[in-house]
Amino acid sequence: MYIEVCNEREQTNHKIEFTGTKVKDLLHQLKINPESVLVVRNNEVITEEETLQDNDKIELLSVISGG
């Protein structure tokens, strides 16, 4: 399936091929530590255990402070 990933910290927006099922699989694939981001889908925060669907649009919000 394909997921659109918008990364706040990197200021990037990419459509990627995803082979897993859950948010935690996506973060693992992207090599992002779940401690460092909040995951938002359709303006709602979702947990790492949430199942993703084809063509989901995901925002990764950085938890880490800027300074």
Binding site: R9, E35, V45, S62, G67
Partner: peptide, 23 residues
């Protein structure tokens, strides 16, 4: 820190992400 970011987001505090270039 993750809880604070979540609280600020859920309370709709207008915070744009910005990172100190020296961090």
């Amino acid at each position: 820190e993750k809880e604070v970011r979540l609280y600020a987001l859920l309370k709709n505090f207008q915070i744009k992400f910005s990172e100190c270039p020296y961090s």
